[in-house]
């Protein structure tokens, strides 16, 4: 989402993931028992889920900001494929506008009928 080339994005993403792994395990003792301040299985699952959510949100917002001028701004289809032609924030604001238009129409029909 950050770079126009799919292959370059894959290489960059893999390098970042491997780099983060190497940093995590090389920067200190990580295998700490949960009885001495380490995380138990449920804690790990919670931290992983929070990290995945944070990565997703920051990725979508940052790529929206960096690609705002490059992409035409109107998704051609729904789902992830729509992000080929629009940033996430553009696609989401289009969706909000569409839903609010639809609601307005329904409310108008209800009160006029």
């Amino acid at each position: 989402m950050f770079l126009p080339g799919r292959r370059l994005s894959l290489v960059l993403g893999t390098a970042l993931a491997v780099g983060a792994f190497a940093w995590f395990f090389a920067s200190g003792e990580r295998n700490i028992p949960d009885t001495e301040g380490g995380l138990d299985g449920n804690g790990q699952a919670g931290v992983f889920a929070a990290a995945a959510g944070a990565a997703l949100v920051s990725g979508l917002v940052l790529s929206s900001l960096t690609n705002a001028l490059r992409l035409p701004g109107k998704p051609l289809e729904i789902g992830l494929d729509g992000l080929n032609g629009a940033t996430y924030l553009q696609a989401l604001s289009g969706l909000v506008a569409e839903v609010s238009r639809s609601w307005r129409r329904q409310i108008q029909q209800y009160f006029s009928g």
Binding site: F24, R30, N31, Q44, F48
Partner: peptide
């Protein structure tokens, strides 16, 4: 030690 760790393979 890394392989057996609580974090490496789960991550």
């Amino acid at each position: 030690a890394v392989l057996v760790s609580d974090y490496f393979i789960p991550a």
